[in-house]
Design a protein around this nucleic acid. Structure first.
Lengths: 189, 189
DNA sequence: TCCAAGGTATACCGATCGGTTTACCTCGAT
DNA sequence: ATCGAGGTAAACCGATCGGTATACCTTGGA
């Protein structure tokens, strides 16, 4: 795997940025604070990343990579027919471990209003991947109208993330999973 | 109805704030710009609202009021058995008219990280109202396990908003509505 | 041996942030 | 006639924003 090679300083910057951007919001976090928390000079940060916008894009790409790895690890433990539902298990553990403030990409979408911000591409890529992966899984599970079913599962995953992290329905992921199971059963071919 | 009485200047401020906060993000918009766009002095803005944080809270409360009115108007056109699904029609028209950048409350949740920000209460109220209203509608429609069904519909609504406004599935609301119809049919008592 | 890559330290830039202050004006109700 | 509420205009506050510049240090290969 072609893991991006980063200097140790850049690695630290990206670690800190990932934490602060997610926890406090992108606009609310300054590059000065990131550099200081990473034990790095502002010059180093700008030498490695060029601008705050590019650092934001890098943060999102990295988080996307981590989420995909998490998903694939979870999927590897099940057989084809079970995998669509395993996406909900992956989401639940992800929320518990890394996502208490909601989906980082939905949150970033709220903040990055300018249509040409480099982070927007990362957001679109993440969501397209998730939908596409669901299509594959649903297709492999053997189901009628796989595209429509995949879209339904996508909606359930996103909705469960919102409901769960907004504190209005703690068990939203389990509820969504049950609904997904019913949808899949009904579409079984 | 006890509509908040605002001075004409405050009204203009709130109008402009509602537009700018939603379109560009809360943190990205300064009070100076709001005052200027509303044709008002900063002093007037602070005399009426006290602080940016309180203005944000007022913006969210007002948007919540507008959404509830929109929902109730839509619901009034149908009979009890159809009303749960009418929530999806209300969402679709709301997105088209006022919500192209996603749910303002989910977006605000992304930006207002501080747990004691006055806007957070408005966010929680909006989401609790939506879930509670769904419970009433589902209950009145005559369904088994109304609380669980309402939670499922809530998840579908939130997920459809995300999927639709993130541009990954334009027809997400229709898809969610179909799923909701199936869930309701299966739970019919 | 030397040189480029990667780094520190620090000062600096103009712009903007949220918020306050002072002085003055207008208008409607008592 | 007056007084208070609501407003304008504009200067000011310290802090922070994203980003740049200058000078110097360390280290690992060619």
């Amino acid at each position: 795997m072609a893991t991006k090679t980063l200097t140790p300083a850049a690695e630290r910057v990206l670690d800190v940025a990932g934490k602060l951007f997610y926890e406090r919001g992108i606009t609310a976090v300054g590059v000065e604070g990131i550099a200081a928390a990473a034990g790095v000079t502002k010059k180093t940060l700008y030498d490695r990343f060029g601008s705050k916008a590019q650092l934001v894009a890098e943060y999102l790409r990295r988080r996307d990579r981590r989420y995909r790895e998490h998903v694939e690890q979870t999927l590897a433990r099940g057989r084809k027919a079970d995998r669509p539902l395993l996406m909900f298990d992956a989401l639940q553990s992800w929320i518990e471990r890394e996502n208490p403030r909601g989906c980082a990409f939905v949150n970033a979408n709220a903040e990055l209003a300018e249509p040409d911000h480099p982070g927007r591409a990362a957001i679109a890529e993440q969501k397209q991947w998730q939908l596409e992966r669901l299509r594959q899984l649903v297709d492999e599970a053997g189901v009628r109208r796989p595209a429509a079913v995949a879209e339904t599962l996508f909606i359930l995953l996103e909705g469960a993330t919102v409901a769960s992290t907004l504190g209005v329905a703690e068990k939203a992921v389990r509820t969504a999973r049950r609904t997904a199971a019913a949808v899949l059963a009904q579409a079984k071919r």
